[in-house]
Design a binder for these strands. Structure first.
Lengths: 195, 195
DNA sequence: TCCCAAGGGTGCAAAGATGCACTCATGGAG
DNA sequence: CTCCATGAGTGCATCTTTGCACCCTTGGGA
């Protein structure tokens, strides 16, 4: 997956990472509204235009790009797969989401702190989770029709979000372990709690 | 002269400087033939191709680009200007050469050491001075016809080179002062010596 | 209320950087 | 001597970065 022999790819990754790190740091220092795109560009030593070449907006730099589900996996999910168990399949879908979009393990904790420290950012992040939830609810409806009530589907999505957030908390407490491990642990504990 | 507001110019200058510094360091460490363009590219974190986008060859990275006289000033010189005194005018021409091609004051000393520490580089540098000398001789001939014998013109050019080298030595001993100042001091001392 | 400065965001063309496939010269190894 | 590996140097297509002119929204002042 990593191509260290390719200068282009390497520099692109470095620049994206640098932008994210600077954005998070600026947010921690001054809050989300305390810095401009120009400030970020200066901090990351790129032009203002380049920021928009990498991210779709100011929020995206801090929160990361809007997550997108793999259409192939979505198709499998809607068809009732991969395991047939709804909870397991939703979790699998969510796990892929996290897996693909976690470029920097230890950035998760820092990023989470930055988000939670700024009211405006909490709102933006919340909006994102809302969108994801809506997507999931729709997917569940496509998959099982009316077998699941929208309320139940919504609860399911919220559970996944909660699991993610709990995993993030664990990641803060124990940054040494990979995030996916914390996520798995959160799932296990949740099962125990609900058992 | 410096445009800190322009990202392009700034980065270009930085890259060129980085390439020069790395090349000099590599030469000091391993000798001129002890490193390849690929080594330099890796050290300066650019692609091999980019090295050739900046410099015309391996030698140019260490010695700097081949100096070129300003055609306008050359025309003035050939016409007998600007002062009418041959020595003064040649010195003025040479001073311009140095002024325009000295991007980094303290690099002069380091670069000089690198050149003097490698036999091959001394040869290359010598060849350059030869070329410059030939150019000057030709210019003097165009200016004063046969009033100056080629031998005398050649001596004149050599004097200038010597002054430059002496100024470089002074620069090594006293890096705090700008190079042009050392150059002027060398000229004064030479006059005293020859008086 | 009207106006304007500031900041987010986009389109486009020019300038830079890179990868890659070449060519050419040279100094050994066999 | 011949062959071949190595490293200098070039041409060209492609991808990135940058500057710049724009547009749109918004929150204050006058």
């Amino acid at each position: 997956m990593e191509q260290l022999c390719n200068r282009r790819e390497t520099k692109r990754t470095q620049t994206a990472l640098r932008l994210q790190q600077c954005a998070v740091q600026l947010t921690i220092d001054r809050g989300f509204d305390g810095w401009t795109i120009d400030d970020l560009a200066a901090a990351a030593d790129v032009s203002r235009r380049t920021v928009f070449n990498y991210f779709d907006g100011k929020a995206d730099v801090v929160l990361g790009p809007v997550v997108e589900l793999d259409p192939e996996r979505v198709a499998v999910f809607v068809a009732g797969g991969p395991s047939g168990n709804l909870l397991a399949d939703v979790l699998a879908l969510a796990a892929d989401l996290i897996e693909e979009h976690t470029s920097d393990q230890d950035m998760i904790a820092t990023g989470r702190n930055a988000v939670l420290g700024d009211a405006r950012l909490i709102g933006l992040a919340h909006q994102r989770f809302e969108d994801i939830t809506a997507t999931f609810v729709e997917l569940v409806r496509e998959r099982d029709g009316d077998a699941y009530s929208p309320d139940r589907a919504r609860l399911l999505s919220r559970l996944v979000v909660t699991l993610f957030d709990n995993a993030a908390e664990r990641s803060v407490a124990d940054p040494g372990r990979p995030f996916s491990e914390h996520f798995d642990a959160a799932i296990r504990d949740a099962r125990d709690v609900l058992a």
